Simulated scan of single mutants.
Amino acid sequence: MKLSVTTYDTTRALFDGSVPIDGVDVTTAPTLPDIYRSLIGGEVDLAEFGLTFYLRSLDQGAPFTALPIFPNRVFRHSCVFVHADSGITHPSDLVGKTIGEFGVYGQDSGVWAKGILMDEYGFQPELNRWVIGGLEHPAPPFEFTSHPHPDDVELTAVPEGKTLSGMLESGEIDALFTANVPQPVLDGSPAIRRLFPNYESVERDYYRRTGIFPMMHAIAAPKDVDAGLARAVYDAFLEAKDIAADQYRQSRRLFQVHHMLPWTNALFEANEQLLPHDWWPYGVAANHKALDAFLRYHFEQGLSARRWTVEEVFAPELLGT
């Protein structure tokens, strides 16, 4: 049986053999469209899957379920970029603007960012024009998934030969919701800045008030996955993640010398004041509030045919986790 997942610090022990899963071969995840096709085609048996693509597959009747394993999490106030001359300094300034989004209307990062802006700042996506396509390379909207959206949301594809990063830098679009930092930003372009320049403090305040640490991905499995196998995979991911967390804790004694990034200890100590001991939880109970928020956002943004519940979208044998 083959499981495809990205190599993160949370999964490294699955690859180096520290945490085996009996009868399961763990392989590195391919690109997103290939993950989807491989899972549909039976080339892999379980795979890391973006939450929105998993939910879209359920709406299309795909025979999948999800395991409450979340190897990828990112706070998402930081994922909204604006053109420096767009006049956007506050979320309220997004009204009437042209906004880009990579690949699909409603990437996991975009679902979270839109939902948070809707909840906290009154953002209304239908008041914007949305442009969908490639971020750094010219590409049409994703072909491997469905593209639901409300009738009152205006969507167009990126013009042929253009990219969202280039259009943002040139001012052809006013803002960009993206899971990846645009290359012009990494290159130091003065033409692009974040909607929330002080995103860390904003995200810390958001977590302090809500307790939500947004998750992007889960592990998708066949709907008829064996209960024993589902539990074994869950337990292995949990152990691998806990090993990684303990390595960070133990490395404090040596001032995190295993990492090249300076002042990692200071960051770890600051996080200890805000985050719980298990700051990256797996399972349903510890993530129920965040998952329910994502499912609500997905429905409110017109991406789900109906409002899914947490209990419906995760494997029944793991609902007690």
Rank of each mutant, 00 (worst) to 15 (best):
G188N: 07
G166F: 12
P182L: 03
D174T: 07
T210H: 00
P262S: 13
R204L: 05
M216E: 04
E239P: 04
L229S: 04
A175W: 10
F213K: 01
S189P: 00
E160C: 06
V257H: 11
P159Q: 08
L155H: 02
T156P: 02
K223S: 09
R193L: 00
G171T: 08
M260S: 11
L267W: 14
E160T: 09
E239G: 05
T163Q: 12
Q256G: 12
A232G: 03
M215A: 07
R193T: 09
Y207D: 04
T163Y: 11
A179W: 04
E269Q: 14
Y199M: 04
R193I: 00
Q256T: 07
W263R: 15
Q250E: 15
A245Q: 10
V233K: 04
E169Y: 08
S189H: 01
Q250C: 05
N198C: 03
D205L: 07
G166A: 15
D226N: 11
L238Q: 14
R204C: 01
H259C: 12
E160P: 01
L267V: 15
V158F: 07
G161Y: 11
T163A: 12
A270N: 12
D224L: 01
M167G: 05
S170W: 06
D174Q: 10
A270I: 05
A157R: 08
L195Q: 02
L254A: 14
Q183L: 08
F255L: 14
T163E: 14
Y248V: 06
S201E: 09
E200C: 00
A221N: 01
Y199C: 03
Q183F: 02
A244G: 11
A270F: 08
T156W: 02
D205N: 11
D246F: 09
R253I: 12
